[in-house]
Nucleic acid binder design. Sequence first.
DNA 1: TTTAATATATAAGATTCCTATATGTAAGGG
DNA 2: CCCTTACATATAGGAATCTTATATATTAAA
Lengths: 110, 110
Amino acid sequence: MIGPGVKRGTAELAVLSVLEDGPLHGYELARRIEQQTKGALRFTLAALYPMLYRMEQQRWIRGAWETSDNGRRRRCYRLTPAGKKKLSPLRHEWAELFRALRQLTKVAHG
Amino acid sequence: MIGPGVKRGTAELAVLSVLEDGPLHGYELARRIEQQTKGALRFTLAALYPMLYRMEQQRWIRGAWETSDNGRRRRCYRLTPAGKKKLSPLRHEWAELFRALRQLTKVAHG
DNA sequence: TTTAATATATAAGATTCCTATATGTAAGGG
DNA sequence: CCCTTACATATAGGAATCTTATATATTAAA
């Protein structure tokens, strides 16, 4: 059964998925999500930062301060083994939701 | 762009979709959602009733008290023309979300 | 020098969902 | 006849996630 945290929680899947391709800091993460979905999915940074803290507390990601080439201080997050492990059942749950909604309604899925 | 009401709001789509097949009362509606998704998607009645009130205020559905064969008093909801009209863009938004998540991650969609 | 882009942070509020609780009728088994 | 289960609606209290608005500070470009 699909849990309550899944029917929302789009952002959680998005963040974990993008971080799977390599470590990133929050600002860039927001841009990747927007770019990779061609603007369809977008999160404000005010939503992302608190979520990154939560995910760090749950040990799914680990953040480290670094100074980039241009001298800017930023917090770089990378997926932990626990985060990687979390992704698989999370994807499965989302796939279940897709299937459930398709059974209820005629949502195009092309 | 996908609005904030869509990333949650699974229930809204579910209710409108099921009501498209014919008028129903709350209790039966909950059962249909669960049955048609083979138990994957499930809402408590405590979640459904307030939602039905909201949707009625928005004129997407219209409720009417009736007494069934077995003498039980219940509120039967039917889709209004406005509700029917709402379904199409709502489905489109969900389809967009599906596509967006598939672009970000490898969620199975079979 | 002023504006835009980069980068993080928090507060206040809305929305949606959950569990728990309450009420009451009808049907079936013992 | 009583008790339990199924039917049916309702509300209160709380958790989680996302929004807008605001704050701070650096760098690059105009």
